[in-house]
Design a protein around this nucleic acid. Sequence first.
RNA 1: GCGCUUGUAGCUCAAUUGGAUAGAGCGCCUGACUUCGGAUCAGGAGGUUGAGGGUUCAAGUCCUUCCAGGCGCACCA
Length: 577
Amino acid sequence: MNIFEQYLDKIKKILLDLKKKGNLILPDSLEGVTAEIPPSKFNSDISTNVAMVLSKINKKSPIDLANTLLEEIKKNDKFVDEISVVKPGFINIKFKPIFWTNFIKEIIQNSNSFGINTRENKKNYLIEFVSANPTGPLHVGHCRGAILGDVIANVLLFNRHKVTKEYYVNDYGNQIINFTKSVYYRIREITFNEPFPKNNDDLYPGDYLSDFAKNIISSNKDMNFKNFDNISEKLTVLAIEEALKLIKKNLKTLGINHDNFISEKKLVANQEVEKVISFLQKNKFVYKGKIKAPVGEDDNNWVEREQLLFRSTDFGDDKDRALQKSDGAWTYFASDVAYHKNKLDRKFDYLINILGADHAGYIKRISSSVEALSNSKGKLICKVSQLVKLIKDKKPFKMSKRKGDYITVDDLISEVGKDATRFIMLNRSSDVELDFDFDNVIEKSKDNPLYYVQYSYARIASIFRHLEMDLKSNIKIDKFDFQYSDDEINILKKISEWPKCIDAASTKLEPHRIPTYLYELASLFHSYWNLGKDNPDKRFINDQKIITDEKLVFLKAISNVVKSGMDIVGVSVPEKM
RNA sequence: GCGCUUGUAGCUCAAUUGGAUAGAGCGCCUGACUUCGGAUCAGGAGGUUGAGGGUUCAAGUCCUUCCAGGCGCACCA
């Protein structure tokens, strides 16, 4: 039920009729023609720019054309109450109240599908997100991208697309060796009482490694930890298992659940890297050559080497990128290309990658590789989530308390909770840096958007509680002959925008639109609620008298949208707060 | 130096995919509690959308040149 789509259809039909009669010239596509909510000052319900879009081709002024169309619309639409042409050439329409009665009837009877875009073709998406190195717990830096990816998946799923959520496990390469060694030293610390090496920058100093060590010792009693080389392979597997166990626990705490965990190590073991590179070689995207030193960096110890390179400059990258290290091992990039080949082979319509701001520079080369692999047909979309600035006592504070010791997801959730973390991390566009104010997110006031939205739901729940009704169950109404007031229609108008909000969030992959929308809806609701103080007619319950079906349906419609939005964001809507 | 990205009210941010007189919250000023939950609401002040140029019927939004901040520019991952 998208009244804007419906209205656009109506207008297009009128346009085609006029064209048939020879009264109008139409371009090949009507793409630029839109139906929108006009700014509130116009006191109107829907507006269209059609006259302005068609004025040039018809050699008529937008105003004249609008006036002609106005007459046609008036003739064809029985719901029009007032219709007018406004300055540059907009046609504004105000509906009769019956329109809104029909609208609320429709969305109450189809509450499960309200908001879903039923017209677009359903696609198959793969979304890769988090993909943090399996060397320790998730920290705050991972959080925003994790939530962004999860909620994008939720929006797409809500819109009935097919979505696979995937985590790429970087369990191959130097850092994993260093990580395993670090775990090994912690094991020696425990079993042989040897101190953990100091001043070794390659090692991971975090305390959590001691827990990994303890777990490994206690579940591998027959293992001999005296010689690293003898056990390094097995220990690598065990250490990564420990790290992944912790990461999965952190993800669960955040309410995030991936479908697949894809191992880089397995890709390498299955020769997928060799295969993809020979594929690229056949198509002349790979060559042996040297990379030039970066400009502007002074006195560096740049060593020019001949190595296997990928021609990412063919696709607009700054320089070609190395695929193989001097010791013969694959670079991270090489196995990531193999991973993306693997993704492409699985025939998704779209591949989405969620990256942190510090990896934005990586986008060009990986998208280049996808173009090379798919003959420019693979649809890779990279979303970057900007940094989160933590604020406490009105002051920013550092993520890293001391070396290797970050504020973890666990720390964050135990302090402010899952709901606040998810809602606030999502409340802003992913393109801008986010201030995460600890004091504010746990505040129970309107300054905290989460509570403000939850409170609107709780208020509605409290009405249903007074009436001894269950807000969650459907209400049955025999007669829908309601008349809603202007205040109520105002909120219904906002509700009519819900499918538009979902549509934008889904097609632009911008889920922050949902918390923003919910806040606006909650705000209208709180205003309306307070009207009851001066005007008993506006109250939902008065002197123990039970409210009308009209108002019950109205409240139900609001709470449905709030609930459905909060479900997508992944936060709770308590009935009591 | 190069690439990506951001710049909107004192502060933090929206802005219906290019629409109309650019909107919210915080802060500031004024008001509403014998409450269907005041964890709320009503009103006021506050703007050359970083600067210039261009495209368009229409630009915060697109192009371009500057300015400023952030991130990144190896065989790390």
